[in-house]
Simulated scan of single mutants.
Amino acid sequence: MDRSERYVITAETLLRAYAAGVFPMAETRDAEDLFWVDPELRGIFPLDGMKISKSLYKTIRQKKFDVRCDTNFLGVMEKCAESTETRPDTWMNEDVFRLYNELFQMGCAHSVECWEGDELVGGLYGVSLGAGFFGESMFSRRPNASKVALMHLVARLRLSGYSLLDTQFVTEHLETLGAIEIPRRAYHLLLDEALQIPVLTFYSDPIEDELASELEDMFLQSRTQTS
Rank of each mutant, 00 (worst) to 15 (best):
L177P: 08
L99E: 09
N101A: 02
L153H: 01
G107Q: 05
S140P: 08
F133N: 11
E193I: 07
V170R: 15
S204N: 05
Y100E: 07
Y100I: 08
H188Q: 13
V127Y: 03
L174K: 05
F202E: 04
G117K: 09
E119S: 04
T176R: 14
L174A: 03
G107Y: 04
D118G: 10
S163L: 12
F133K: 08
T90W: 00
R158P: 07
T176A: 01
E210S: 15
R87M: 11
L211G: 05
S160V: 00
G122D: 08
E113P: 11
L191Y: 04
V199C: 02
T176H: 10
W91N: 06
G130P: 10
E113G: 08
S160W: 00
G126F: 08
L200P: 12
H173T: 11
V96S: 01
L174R: 03
A109H: 00
R98Y: 02
R141C: 13
L195R: 13
E210M: 14
H173E: 12
D118L: 06
L129Q: 13
E172H: 11
Y187F: 15
V170E: 10
L195P: 14
W115L: 12
F202R: 01
A186H: 05
D192P: 00
E113L: 03
F139Q: 02
E119Q: 15
G135W: 04
L153V: 00
Y162L: 00
T90H: 00
V112L: 05
K147Y: 09
R158Q: 15
G135A: 15
L124I: 04
Q168R: 14
D205S: 15
Y162C: 02
S160D: 03
E116A: 10
G123N: 09
F169W: 10
G132M: 10
L211V: 02
Y203V: 04
D166M: 02
S160R: 00
L159C: 07
F97I: 03
A131E: 08
S111V: 14
G117M: 08
V154R: 01
Y187P: 03
L103Q: 03
L189C: 01
Q196K: 15
F134N: 08
E175K: 15
G107R: 06
R184C: 12
L195V: 12
S140G: 13
G107A: 02
A131V: 01
S83C: 01
N144R: 09
S128L: 01
H152L: 07
L150Y: 10
V121L: 07
G123P: 12
D95C: 02
G117P: 13
V170P: 08
A186E: 15
L190W: 00
P143Q: 10
S137F: 07
M151Q: 13
S160Q: 05
V127K: 05
V112F: 07
G117Y: 07
G135R: 05
D89T: 08
S128I: 00
G132C: 08
S128G: 14
S204T: 09
G161L: 04
L120M: 09
H173L: 09
